[in-house]
């Protein structure tokens, strides 16, 4: 049975599916437009571990989850996370961690050269920066996050 038949308005001569996905899952992956750039970015900035955490969150936390039906991974949180990641300078010696908060936000954390925590929680509308070294904690609208990071986390 072609399980996708009702959603496939045409078939090609090779009987490939008409969807955007890869017709034969395996070692080669096809991406939605723009996805390949995201995958490259997260791999280059957070390594295989960070990439794996992101895949885990997006695959497994898309609906209500946990004992209190916590919120699913927020698409807008992901957008802000990726746009920030593109310009963020994470020290080379740092090993970043990635978490999912109960509000469905991505949280990126690493330790500075003195072992003090640097944490950014990416929300749908606002984001939060925490710098343990300065005892600094601030929540700003997402549009102001780039300025805050430039000011507080200079390259």
């Amino acid at each position: 049975m072609d399980i996708l038949a009702p959603t496939a308005p045409y078939t090609t001569s090779s009987h490939f599916l008409s969807g955007t996905g890869d017709s034969s899952p395996g070692r080669v992956r096809c991406f939605e437009p723009g996805e390949a750039a995201r995958e490259r970015l997260i791999l280059s900035k957070l390594g295989k571990s960070g990439w794996g955490r992101w895949q885990y969150f997006r695959q497994c936390f898309s609906g209500g989850w946990g004992e209190r039906r916590q919120k699913p991974l927020s698409p807008r949180s992901q957008e802000v996370f990726f746009s920030t990641l593109a310009t963020l300078d994470i020290p080379e010696q740092a090993t970043p961690s990635l978490f999912l908060t109960d509000d469905g936000h991505i949280e990126l954390a690493w330790r500075d050269a003195d072992g003090r925590a640097v944490q950014i929680e990416f929300g749908a509308a606002t984001s939060e920066l925490y710098l343990e070294s300065e005892g600094f904690e601030a929540t700003v609208p997402n549009r102001d996050l780039p300025d805050l990071l430039r000011e507080r986390l200079p390259a």
């Binding site: 955490r53 936390f61 090993t95 961690s97 978490f99 999912l100 908060t101 949280e107 954390a109 925490y130």
Partner: peptide
Amino acid sequence: DKWDEATGEMSAS
């Protein structure tokens, strides 16, 4: 969701 096995770190959340 709050524990990163690769780094052994916990989320503040």
